[in-house]
């Protein structure tokens, strides 16, 4: 009995080499892109060095949306095919996406205080990002409150798909409601001095997003395996808790 569990435990191998290397590359890319941003871009006329927050805020926002697209796509695949991997991928992407969305909101708020004079304003992009954040916190809460893995997968897939469907509607409704946010920063609307640095940071954050999801996905697989071992142990009547 314990031998078998030891074997399983031995099966939880060390992190694959590519993941460790990719993580180091992503970290180096973020640091490098930040240094590049600080070196190359002059202080903004109106905002001064506050503008540098853009190099974290905007890439975090872009990649948060990308993460939620992954959630949507993996949820559809799960409901279609019922492969456990799709469910675990959706959950991993939702966690990382929620962290990036939180980061976007927090940094936007820190930037908004000196620039707009307020920590928070009821603007369309701000409020819809906050709503998106809460939708995916709800997604994660539902997962943690549902024990049966099959149920958890089906339910959270539905919540993930509904949440993603709602994003454009929420955005449109609050935009009609009120708007004051400055035109969204894309490389095209920026002066060329900032463009390269923003693109570079966007790419660095994309790498970060991928390795974060990969680590979380790996952890989710291991947790799932631990659940199965515990289940098996319980069925055999041993008091093992994993």
């Amino acid at each position: 009995m314990s031998e078998r569990i030891d074997q399983r435990r031995a099966g939880v191998e060390r992190a694959p080499a590519w993941l460790v290397v990719a993580s180091a590359v992503a970290l180096a890319a973020v640091i490098g892109a930040q240094i590049f941003g600080f070196r190359t871009s002059p202080p903004d006329m109106a905002m001064g060095d506050l503008q540098k927050i853009m190099y974290v805020h905007v890439p975090a926002a872009w990649n948060a949306f990308l993460a939620f697209f992954v959630v949507f796509w993996a949820s559809v695949v799960y409901l279609w095919r019922r492969t456990e991997r799709a469910d675990l991928l959706a959950a991993s992407a939702a966690e990382v996406g929620a962290v990036f969305t939180g980061l976007t909101l927090l940094l936007g708020s820190i930037w908004g205080r000196p620039t707009w004079g307020v920590w928070w304003t009821w603007d369309a992009r701000l409020t819809s990002t906050a709503v998106l954040f809460i939708i995916f916190v709800g997604y994660l809460a539902l997962r943690s409150f549902t024990d049966d893995p099959d149920r958890r997968g089906r339910w959270s897939a539905a919540v993930g798909i509904f949440g993603a469907l709602n994003v454009p509607i929420v955005y449109m409704s609050v935009r009609w409601w009120r708007t004051l946010h400055q035109v969204q920063s894309t490389p095209e609307t920026l002066s060329p001095a900032y463009r390269a640095a923003l693109r570079l940071n966007g790419l660095a954050f994309l790498l970060l997003l991928i390795v974060f999801i990969a680590w979380r996905y790996r952890a989710a697989r291991i947790e799932r395996r631990a659940e199965l071992v515990a289940e098996e142990a319980a069925l055999q009547g041993s008091g093992l808790h994993v």
């Binding site: 409020t127 709503v131 809460i134 939708i135 916190v137 709800g138 809460a141 539902l142 409150f145 549902t146 024990d147 149920r151 339910w155 539905a158 919540v159 509904f162 949440g163 709602n166 509607i169 929420v170 449109m172 409704s173 609050v174 409601w177």
Partner: peptide
């Protein structure tokens, strides 16, 4: 739709509004 899940989960009283209300922002507005 959401109650069909929340009512059968472990934390039904809290979970339903947590899932439902952010989805209802467009309806409320």
């Amino acid at each position: 739709f959401y109650a069909s899940m929340a009512s059968r989960s472990r934390a039904r009283e809290v979970l339903l509004p947590l899932l439902l209300f952010p989805m209802l922002v467009p309806v409320l507005v």
